[in-house]
Every structure is written in structure tokens, then in C-alpha cells.
Simulated assay, not measured.
Amino acid sequence: MGWDEFLLLWCAVWGVVALAGCGMSLAGVTAEQRTVRLTGRIERVREPRHGGSRKGGISVVVSYRDPASGQEVTVTNDGECGEMITAAWEGREIGVSYPRGRPHVHRFSNIPEEPGRGLGWAGFALFLVHVGLVVLAAVDRGWPWALIGFCGPWAVFAAFHLPGTVRAKNDRLGRLAAMDTVRGRVVAVLKDVSVDQDDGHTWTTITPVVSFTTREGTSVTALCTSHLADPAGAYGRDVTVHYTPADPADFTLDRAAEHRSEGQDVTFNILVIIVFAATAVAGGVLL
């Protein structure tokens, strides 16, 4: 079997996989569509122990109602329960998901999530079809087709997402400007040590935990991963916290630094467009 036959077979197989995934999505039988997604409520926040581990994030007790049975379910985030809860307060709404009919096999997310269509694998299979077609064109017609086939679509993709990136930047700057400011305190410093199984090298991760009370009287406990000098020695330190009134999970200890970093995503997106577009054009010139 030559390269042409192999690549055609590759495209055919992954094309069938993509069609099967789309068919399952239309029939509503993908794993994503069979997952129940709803909103849970934090009933209790357990303050982290100083010197403990950050695994699982802030320890919380969450309640939610199973829509199928009407049963009220109360669980904790001990163990592997999805996303790490990085900020918590009593009454906060978070996302909960679980297989249909099994409400105790739960996973958390920091924000409630909308049900998906389960097209992830179908999209990945379609991408592999595209890769096969580009390689086939490069083999048959010359390697510049690889530059056009790979870099051209990525340039279009990046250009399509640029307006959204700009809007996200402007929205973030608006939230930073509207933040309230209160005093907070580092109530714990968490320490995790991981060991590389190959060479025995160890990594130590230090994560301070900040507690603050909003002007509305909400007591917030949150992991603080940036903008804190000497985090290992921060236990008991008073800090200034800037937070978004509508969502105290959106907070920072250095609003000026956040403001300076907001333009980086837009700059990176523009550079990606330029590089990919120039590479695709170069491929066209070399044909």
C-alpha cells in the first residue's frame, strides 16, 4: 500500500468516525447529552488547614436537587470531583454534573455549565481528516501545500476569534475599574510536594488562602495564586483585596498588574494571525 492509498484510507476511516459522532449527537445519545447538568448551592465552607494540601480546592458542602427523583442531595468535594473549587462562600452557586440516574457520582465546576451536544470527538475526527487531506496534497503536489493547508485555516480561525478576544479584554478592563476594595487576611498557606517518578526531582507548590468579607457582608475564602510577595511566609498577613461585587470569585491583590496584563492576549492573537497568514502566503508563492 502506497502513501496515497494509506492517506485515502485514513481520511475515509476518520470521516466515518466523524459522521458517526454527528449521528449520535443528532440522536441525543452521546455521553455529554446523557450527563445531567444543574446548579448546586454551597451550604457550608470549611476553612483550609494551614500547611495542608490544595487538592480539591476549598473544602465545601454542596446541595442540589435531582430533577428526575426530586431528591435533595448533599455532598462534599472530597476526592476527585471535577474542577478545583478556588473560591467559596455560603450561598454561592456552582455547576454540578453527573450521569443520568446517578446523582451521587458528581463532578463540580466553578460556574454552572450549559448542556453540550457531545461533538468533541466528531470535531477531532474531522480535524484528522483535514490533516490527511493536507498531507495527501503535499505528497502529490509539493510540500508548499502543507504550509497553505495547515497555516491558512489556522490564520482564519485566529482572525475569527480576534473580535471575541478584544471584547473579553474590554469587559475585563471594565470589571477591573468597577471593583470594590476591602481588607483581607491570609488564613492559611497550603503546601503540595510532587515527585518525578523518572528522576526523583521534587516540586513544591505553595498556595496562600485569602479570606475577606465583601461590603455586602459575604464572607469569602479563596485560593490566591498570584500577586502576593513571599507566599510561603504570608500566613497571617493582612492584604488589600479588589473584587467584583457581582462575583467575588473574580478578585485580585494587584489591580494595576492585572490591568497591564490584559493586552497580552490580544497581542498574542494578532501575532498568531500574522505568522500563520505569512506562512500560508509563502506557501502560495513557492508553488
Rank of each mutant, 00 (worst) to 15 (best):
M1I: 12
D4H: 07
L7I: 03
L7H: 03
A12G: 12
V13M: 09
G21F: 01
G28F: 10
G28S: 06
V29Q: 00
V29A: 14
T30Q: 03
T35S: 01
V36I: 08
L38A: 00
L38E: 01
R44E: 13
E47V: 08
H50C: 12
G52W: 09
K55H: 11
G57V: 10
S59Q: 12
S59K: 14
R65C: 13
G70K: 10
E72V: 08
T74V: 14
T74E: 13
D78R: 05
G79K: 02
G79M: 05
E83W: 07
R92S: 07
V96M: 00
R100S: 03
G101P: 00
G101Y: 00
R102I: 01
P103D: 11
R107T: 14
S109Q: 05
N110C: 03
N110K: 05
P112R: 07
E113N: 03
R117D: 00
L119G: 06
G120H: 07
F127W: 04
L128S: 12
V135A: 11
L136M: 04
V139G: 04
R141K: 09
L147D: 01
I148L: 13
A155V: 05
F157C: 06
A159N: 02
T165N: 09
T165M: 15
V166D: 00
N170T: 12
R172Y: 12
G174Q: 05
A178C: 08
M179T: 01
M179R: 12
V182R: 11
V182Q: 11
R183L: 10
G184Y: 04
R185E: 09
V186T: 08
A188E: 05
L190K: 03
K191W: 09
K191V: 09
S194C: 04
V195A: 11
V195F: 11
Q197E: 14
H201P: 01
T204N: 07
T207A: 07
V209P: 00
T214A: 02
G217M: 07
A222W: 02
S226M: 12
L228A: 12
A232G: 04
A234T: 11
G236N: 04
R237D: 07
D238Q: 09
V239M: 02
T240K: 10
V241M: 08
H242E: 14
T244D: 15
D247M: 11
E258D: 13
E258P: 00
H259E: 14
R260A: 13
S261D: 11
G263V: 09
D265Y: 05
D265C: 06
V266Q: 05
F268H: 02
V272I: 15
V281N: 01
G283F: 03
V285I: 15
L286E: 10
